[in-house]
Every structure is written in C-alpha cells, then in structure tokens.
C-alpha cells in the first residue's frame, strides 16, 4: 500500500517539473499552471492518506483547515483587481512563510523543544526564514498597496541593524542547537527576533523595488518548504521547495537586469533611496 502512494508522489514530482517548465514559455504557460496545480493537489491527497507508524489522523482539523483556507484563497484571487496582483502574490507568499514558521513551532512542541544538533539547527533556521518571509511579505504588501509609505517605517542605520540582527540570529541558532534544548523564553525571544528582522530587512527598500524583493522572499518561502520536506521526510516538498528556491533566485536576478539595477543596489541601496525621499520632501 505504501508503494502505491510512493508512486503517486513520484508522478506528482514529475508533473511539477513539467509544469514549471511549461510555465516559463508563453504558449504553454496556462497548461503549466494547471499541471503544477494538479501536482500540488495530488501531493496533498497522498499526504492525507499516506500510511504512518503512529497516526492519530485528526482528519477533522485537516478538512477544516483546507476548506477554510481554500475558500479564502479562491475568493481573494477572484476578487483582486488586475492592477493589485503583485501585492496579492506578496500576501499569499507571506501566508506560506507563516505556515512554514507554524510547522517549525509544531515540530518543536512535539519534540519538547529538544533534539540533536543537526535537527534543531535545521528547524530553528526554518522558523527564522518562515517568520522573515511572513513579516517581510507583509511590509512589501503594505508598501505596494500604498498603505505603507517609504517614510513611514524608517530604521536608523538600517544596514548595520540588519547585519547585526542576522549575525545574532545565526549565533543563537548555533547556541540553542549546541545546548540541544530551548526554554520557552528562548523560543519566544527567538521568534520575536525573526519577526523583527523580517520588518527591518524590507522596510528600508524603496517601493519601486518591491517586485524584486517579493521574488526574493518567494524564493525564501520555497527554501522553507524544502526544509519542511526534510523535516517530515517528504520528497515532493523537498523537490518543489528547492525548485522554487533556486528558480526564485534566478528570477530575482533576471528582474534586476530587466530593471537595470543590481541586486546589491536593491538590497543595500536603501541608503540612497531614503536620501532621495528626504530631498523630495
């Protein structure tokens, strides 16, 4: 019985690759989108019925989650104005990141916040990326929809703050993983740090550069999906996540080229864009 589901998962993986391939050609893009959707759908069905060692199933919660989320997603996609598509993508992407962060939290709770060095560092890294993708996408959404102006969220010495926070996060992951256990206070502090970093990372970047940033955050969400795939031993998630992650990075670079900007200028050029904003005022 397990083999049957494994074969389905394999077919789904192939569909995903073909779908993404078709998505990148103008004539076949629509078919590619449908194929990718079928692949994800198949993956969901397999994950629901896959035989597991200790299964409590909790199907009620799963059905409830999919129905509520599916309806909200479909309605939001249908109602959104054509001009507001990029910010919708950003919003969806943020939700994906939040989901990844929740998955890491659940893993930590299920394992009593303790584990081996490798496991813990991977999960904490996933938690960090998930929250960064979430809050970062929310800021990007705010900027694109015009609710958040460039001068609303001003971070003093943004580059220095960002680098300090990033180093702090990496060091904390190392320390917690080395200890092999997290207290509740540590977990909450680390979560808060991740949430703050997402905001300070995107806030200094000008509104015009948001599409590039969304593409970058999209690639981050892909990586969290891949890591969650390793955590739950699901090869489709790993494959899909890495495909999104690597293609997302290439796409980010291509978008920079199309806009005649370098990625470094987009991420760290915040300095100049903030100055330009000041002189405009």
């Amino acid at each position: 019985m397990t083999v049957f589901f494994d074969i389905l998962l394999f077919i789904s993986s192939i569909l995903l690759i073909v779908g993404l391939r078709k998505l990148s050609h103008p004539e076949s893009a629509n078919n590619g989108n449908i194929l990718a959707a079928i692949s994800v759908g198949l993956g969901i069905i397999v994950s629901i019925f896959y035989p597991m060692e200790t299964q409590n199933n909790n199907y009620l919660f799963i059905a409830l989650g999919i129905i509520i989320g599916g309806i909200i997603g479909l309605i939001a996609a249908k109602k959104v104005a054509m001009t507001a598509m990029p910010e919708m993508v950003s919003l969806f992407n943020g939700f994906g990141g939040f989901s990844a962060a929740l998955i890491s939290l659940i893993w930590l709770i299920n394992h009593n916040s303790s584990g081996g060095y490798a496991d813990l560092s991977v999960v904490l890294f996933n938690l960090f990326l998930g929250f960064v993708a979430f809050t970062g996408s929310m800021v990007a959404f705010g900027k694109l929809s015009g609710k958040l102006k460039d001068n609303h969220l001003k971070i003093p010495y943004a580059s220095i703050v960002n680098i300090t926070l990033l180093i702090l996060a990496v060091v904390l992951i190392g320390v917690f993983a080395y200890q092999g256990k997290l207290t509740h206070v540590h977990l909450i502090l680390f979560t808060v740090l991740s949430i703050i970093y997402g905001v300070t990372f995107v806030a200094p970047i000008g509104g015009a550069d948001m599409p590039v940033v969304i593409s970058l955050l999209n690639s981050l969400t892909g990586i969290t999906a891949a890591i969650s795939g390793v955590m739950t031993d699901n090869k489709l998630m790993l494959l899909g996540g890495i495909l999104v992650g690597s293609s997302g990075i290439i796409l980010t670079l291509l978008m920079c080229v199309a806009m005649n900007r370098s990625l470094v200028a987009v991420l760290f050029g915040s300095f100049s864009s903030a100055k330009a904003g000041e002189t405009a005022n």
Binding site: L20, T221, G240
Partner: peptide, 15 residues
C-alpha cells in the same frame, strides 16, 4: 506560479 508551488508547505502541516 512558483509562489503557488511553495503552497506545498501545506503538506508538511498535514503530515
């Protein structure tokens, strides 16, 4: 489209 694919994350939550 690739953002939608990262919706695969949902599988992790289900598992």
């Amino acid at each position: 489209g690739s953002n939608a694919i990262s919706g695969l994350i949902l599988i992790g939550a289900i598992l």
